[in-house]
Design a protein around this nucleic acid. Sequence first.
DNA 1: TGCTAACAGTGACAATGTCACATAGACGCG
DNA 2: CGCGTCTATGTGACATTGTCACTGTTAGCA
Lengths: 225, 225
Amino acid sequence: MNPEEIDTEWVERFPGLSRLEPTTKKLLLQRSTVVSMPETTVIFGPGKSPENMLFLLSGTVRVQQVSETGHEIVLYRINAGESCVLTTACLLAYDDYSAEGIAESAVRAAAVPRQVFDDLVAQSPSFRNFVFAAFSKRITDLFLMIDEVAFQRMDVRLAHKLIELSKGRDQISTTHQKLSVELGTAREVISRQLQEFQRRAWVEQSRGTVKILDRAQLEKLAARD
Amino acid sequence: MNPEEIDTEWVERFPGLSRLEPTTKKLLLQRSTVVSMPETTVIFGPGKSPENMLFLLSGTVRVQQVSETGHEIVLYRINAGESCVLTTACLLAYDDYSAEGIAESAVRAAAVPRQVFDDLVAQSPSFRNFVFAAFSKRITDLFLMIDEVAFQRMDVRLAHKLIELSKGRDQISTTHQKLSVELGTAREVISRQLQEFQRRAWVEQSRGTVKILDRAQLEKLAARD
DNA sequence: TGCTAACAGTGACAATGTCACATAGACGCG
DNA sequence: CGCGTCTATGTGACATTGTCACTGTTAGCA
């Protein structure tokens, strides 16, 4: 498969879009452009509205928020095969909201102009379905996150996050500071919890990495919700 | 103005809808029905999906969540002039989500069937705009809520909530228990904070009511964010 | 080599959450 | 009226989490 083919056939490889009507697919392909961005690119944020809606072909976008008090928290991630539906729609109404989207790795995405997005919503029932499903997923995820932040213990949340970030591997490259932003807490809290996990021989720490030694125990703790 | 007129002209009195195309308004009026529900009606919730999208004409709907641990938290309210856009859309995809909508007072609403909603989104650019603006508002509000729950001090949040619930009046009919659900905390925490507010002569408590004595001071504390 | 960031550890304390109670008002009913 | 029985609120002990002011450690680089 050469690069040309990949760039024109991306719609087929997109879980939510492959079942669109042929004319809709054609419109999407014709009116979109594939763009690439290096790691750490700020895709949208305060004072930087995106003009396009993105469909992520590869890479990950991290969406996080900085509060007025200087505290940070990661809201969610957009992975390959997902779309930034809400960024377009949101910034339609409020371009001064405080969240920002950052490329967590090199990102390739199909950019669909706002106008085309609107046309597609009007024309295609299945595209409408795709869009509303994306909104639904996002909102229910935010509901779950509120519940977690408000009621879940820190050790459970950290265990959960370690499992999630590990993606099946045992070595996680991250710092206590970054983990604290993931969970919206203080670095010291992460340090204490990781020390406790290390004392129990569930993890092993070294500068900039956390190594999972006993995944089963972490999963057991993470399941407490 | 007699009841008949009210029921047929509600679109005009709806902030987000009055500027719709005449044909769209007509469709909305023809294909919707005005319904009434008494206080405490569960409008949607686990095992009770709404088939219609509601436009609130009068009254308030409280949307709250019960976590698996038994903790409750109020997510947001829908007031007269607003719509339950996301309930329809959400339940389109996930009808097992844990949030529930409760009529906080007697409610009158225009019910729009799902199919009509879909047709309207397809036909009318300004209805699309209305829908996406509603989604945007909801999502940015949820972002703010996450920030508040994660980083705001309890006294600031309580002061803010008291101001909000008072709606300009000085007497608030509520219990410590209900206030704790509003903020997703424990009753004891509310009791302690209210005692401190009372000690400072900012409020006066009696069984089932909180009376605001010094609104200025409460507002000053609430502004700390 | 030595400087400078970034990363991590620590102890004291404040704020909040949890638990197990005690106390008090409201209200119906014999 | 007196009595139980709710619901609402008060309280103290303790655990967890957040905050602050530090110290020590490591990697990268001029």
